[in-house]
Amino acid sequence: MPASAARAKVAAMPAARSRKTQGTQPPSFDFDESSLGALDAGDDAMLDAGRLDGVAYSGIARDTWQLESGATVEACRFDGLDLGTWALRGAHLVESVFAGANVPTVSAARGGWRDVELRDSRFGSVEAYDVAWRGIRFSRCKLGYVNLRGAELLDVAFVDCTIDEIDLLDASARRVAFDGARIGTLNAGGARLTDVDLRGADLSQVVGMEGLRGATISPEQLQLMAAALADLAGIVVE
Rank of each mutant, 00 (worst) to 15 (best):
A157L: 08
D44Q: 06
G190D: 01
L224V: 08
A157Q: 07
V237A: 10
L232W: 09
E74A: 15
A12K: 12
E165N: 12
A61Q: 12
L52I: 08
A11K: 15
I235T: 06
R114H: 00
L222F: 09
D179M: 11
L67K: 04
A49W: 04
G112T: 06
I235L: 11
V131W: 07
G200H: 05
D160I: 05
A8P: 07
A191S: 14
V94P: 00
D197F: 03
A11W: 11
S58P: 00
V103D: 12
D164I: 03
A228E: 14
T72G: 04
A75E: 05
I183S: 01
A201Q: 05
T185K: 09
L148R: 13
I60E: 04
G189W: 02
P219I: 01
R19M: 13
R192M: 10
V156D: 02
A181R: 10
A91N: 09
A173M: 05
L39H: 03
R89T: 13
L67P: 03
G211M: 06
E152W: 12
V97A: 00
W86I: 07
T24Y: 11
G54V: 01
D48K: 11
R17T: 13
S35G: 14
I166L: 07
A99E: 14
N102A: 13
D202M: 15
D63R: 13
E210H: 03
G189H: 06
F98Y: 06
E95K: 02
D164A: 08
D79V: 14
P104N: 12
S107Y: 10
D130H: 08
G184M: 13
Q66M: 09
R149F: 03
G211Q: 04
A45W: 00
K20L: 11
Q205W: 10
L186E: 01
V206H: 04
D30G: 04
R17V: 13
Q22K: 07
G42Q: 01
W65R: 13
D79E: 14
T85Y: 08
S218D: 02
D179P: 01
L224E: 13
A41P: 01
R134E: 09
L168V: 04
G50P: 13
D30P: 02
C161Y: 06
L222S: 08
L229A: 07
D32I: 15
R122L: 09
R19I: 08
V73K: 02
A11D: 14
A132M: 14
S172L: 15
Y129V: 11
R149E: 14
R119L: 10
F31S: 00
D30Y: 01
Q221D: 03
T24L: 07
G90W: 02
M225T: 02
D164K: 07
S96E: 03
L153K: 03
A171S: 08
C76S: 00
I166E: 09
A201E: 04
F31H: 01
G208P: 06
D170C: 15
F138W: 13
T21S: 09
G189K: 06
L118V: 15
G189L: 07
G190W: 00
S204F: 09
A87F: 15
I163V: 15
A201H: 04
I235Y: 04
V126E: 07
W113I: 00
W86F: 12
D32W: 07
A230H: 04
T21C: 08
A157H: 06
G37Y: 02
G124V: 04
E95G: 00
V116Y: 06
L36I: 04
V97S: 00
L36D: 01
V207Q: 10
R51A: 15
D44F: 02
A128K: 10
